[in-house]
Amino acid sequence: MIREIDLNADLGEGFPDDDALLDRVSSASICCGAHAGGPDVSRRAIEAALRKGVAVGAHPGFPDREGFGRRERQASPAQVEAIVREQLDRFGQWAAGLGAEVQFVKPHGALYNQAQRDRGIASGLVAAVSGFAPRRPILGLAGSVLGEEARRAGLRFVVEGFADRRYRPDGSLVPRSEPGAVIDDPEEAVRQVLSLIGRGPETICLHGDDPGALRLADRLRTALADAGVLVRSFVRGTGA
């Protein structure tokens, strides 16, 4: 039986390799303009993804451009819902104007990490996605509070693994503030991805702000092909 995995990249954040990465991934989590980028940058990424048959996802984050959305903050469920819903509505308008459909939602940075363990943050995020038309899948870590809240609300929860981030024994990600949180060696990243396949993740993330993302993407595509793993988006009808 042919095994499948989705490769997604976080794009539309103002870094130079978006177009090239879209030739190598099957899904794109595109910035909604709050933590980085802006309307023109996001529209270019959406347009390129549409042209290349890559699934388009919204990538909302805390509106913290100085900290690139990676600084944790305290926020009530209602505040999170408002922050995320505003970004989703705006991103949805950009996508619709280009003839694209928003096919999933993946939170960014601190919003992502806090939602995995903080039920208030997770519930606000889920409420925003539930109110977005049409309701879309949410990406997150296996065994997370976000997964529990998404499933409770009747949303599809897509388990995500990471190629370029190290894990703690409990399955959470090592915070970027700690040494060794990011995997710089492509061979180590490949070994991690191959070990993750078959253990739950439907999608594997690459970070578009990483200068080594293209090299890692190429190495991953080769390793997956050698292992008989097909790269295809978890959104049916799209793929690479």
Rank of each mutant, 00 (worst) to 15 (best):
G143M: 07
H59Q: 04
D64R: 04
A34I: 09
Q103F: 06
F104I: 03
D64C: 11
P137L: 08
A142W: 02
R117K: 15
F132E: 10
V102A: 09
A122F: 12
N113R: 00
G109Y: 15
V41G: 10
E47N: 08
V54P: 00
P134R: 13
A127K: 10
R117H: 05
E101Q: 15
I121D: 01
A133T: 13
H35C: 06
I46L: 05
E101V: 09
G99F: 13
S123V: 05
V56L: 07
R44P: 01
L141N: 06
V41W: 04
E81D: 11
R65W: 13
F62G: 01
G53H: 15
D40F: 14
A96M: 01
G37D: 01
P137C: 09
V56P: 10
Q114E: 04
E101M: 05
V56F: 10
S76V: 12
A95L: 10
I138M: 12
W94G: 04
A96Q: 15
Q74K: 07
V129C: 08
A49I: 02
F68M: 14
E149K: 08
F68P: 11
G120K: 03
H108L: 07
G131V: 08
L141K: 13
G97S: 10
Q79Y: 07
A122N: 00
C31I: 07
A95S: 11
P107Q: 03
L141Q: 10
G147C: 02
Y112W: 02
H59M: 12
Q116L: 14
S76T: 15
I46T: 01
F91T: 06
R71K: 12
R136H: 07
V129K: 04
G61W: 05
S130Y: 01
S144T: 06
G124H: 11
A128Q: 11
S130A: 15
F91E: 02
G38S: 09
F104D: 04
G33V: 14
C31F: 06
R85P: 05
A100P: 01
G124R: 05
R85H: 14
D64Q: 10
I46Y: 00
Y112S: 00
R135G: 12
G120A: 04
A58V: 01
C31K: 03
A49W: 05
L50W: 02
E86L: 13
A55N: 12
A100W: 14
L98N: 08
G124D: 04
G53E: 14
R65M: 15
A48M: 09
S130T: 14
A95F: 09
V105Y: 04
R73V: 15
L98R: 09
V80C: 02
R71P: 03
S144Q: 02
E66R: 08
G38Y: 10
S130F: 07
N113P: 00
A100Q: 14
A133D: 15
D40N: 13
S123R: 14
A48T: 15
G37R: 01
V80R: 00
K106A: 06
G109C: 13
G33W: 11
A36L: 05
P39I: 12
R65H: 14
G120N: 07
V126A: 05
G120S: 10
V102I: 13
A82I: 09
E86Q: 13
A36M: 01
Q74W: 02
G124C: 12
R117E: 12
E66S: 07
G131F: 07
G97Q: 11
E86M: 09
D89A: 10
A48H: 06
P77W: 01
G124P: 14
R85K: 12
G140Q: 08
G109K: 02
A82G: 03
G69T: 11
E101P: 06
P60L: 05
